[in-house]
């Protein structure tokens, strides 16, 4: 399609064949958009020229349209790609989820190493909840499983469904912060004015980089959207 000589061979052909060369050349372009095929009957040579031009334009347009549609799909493909990248790298403070048995009998490089874990509970704007951690900080040993809980209460007079979204800071620690059980895995239903403790079981991976001695686990409590 980049061959320039090919491009206007048609035009030249029409010039010789008909009394109105200009017309044929113009209609070769104009009719390519898919308008009125029959109109060109006045110039006999225009038929093949027009069809050839149409085919070329159609081919380029089809390819480009395919790119456009593909890129629309790519926009949506970025959603799973984004999730996978966040999961693999631990960016975005997304925490890991492991089976309870994974850290049994792990040999610890430094048995005396202690990590401070802080817990933060935040209610998203507009939600009428009470939401707070049972303890605000605890000292933990990597590779050992710990239990704690958050307390949530629905302050409104209607039953509501909440969903907590976790985030770990610093982000580099996120993928070493693993939970075997968490209330954040599921939607939490509350009756009007009722509250309860919600448990979390976590373990810090002994591979946690040595320069990290403080990890903050923050939950934001959202009013869950009605299922689609």
């Amino acid at each position: 399609m980049n061959d320039p000589n090919n491009t206007n061979a048609n035009t030249t052909g029409n010039t010789n064949a008909t009394g109105t060369p200009a017309d044929a050349a113009v209609s070769a372009g104009a009719d390519a958009a898919g308008q009125s095929f029959g109109h060109n009957s006045s110039s006999a040579a225009a038929g093949p020229a027009k069809e050839s031009a149409m085919r070329k334009h159609g081919l380029v347009s089809a390819k480009l349209l395919a790119i456009a549609i593909g890129m629309f799909g790519f926009g949506y493909l970025m959603v799973p790609i984004y999730d996978i990248i966040c999961e693999v790298t631990g960016l975005n403070g997304k925490t890991g989820r492991v089976a309870a048995s994974e850290y049994e009998n792990v040999a610890l490089a430094d048995p005396d190493r202690m990590i401070t874990v802080e817990f933060v509970g935040i209610v998203n704007a507009g939600g009428s909840w009470e939401f707070k951690p049972e303890v605000s900080r605890m000292q933990v040993k990597p590779g050992v499983t710990y239990n704690t809980s958050f307390f949530a209460k629905n302050l409104s007079s209607q039953p509501v469904v909440g969903q907590a979204s976790p985030s770990v800071s610093p982000a580099t620690a996120a993928k070493y912060f693993n939970k075997t059980e968490c209330f954040c895995f599921t939607r939490q239903e509350f009756d009007a004015n009722s509250g309860r403790d919600m448990g979390i079981v976590f373990v810090i991976d002994p591979e946690l980089p040595a320069n990290v001695d403080l990890v903050t686990l923050s939950y934001t409590f959202f009013r869950s959207q009605p299922p689609a």
Partner: peptide
Amino acid sequence: IPVFAGAVTMLLTDRYFGTSFFSAAGG
């Protein structure tokens, strides 16, 4: 441009059709 069209479509479905592309409450 199609990527932008996709992004605003996601916003539209988040707002009116209950999807949660960008809403933390739905993941």
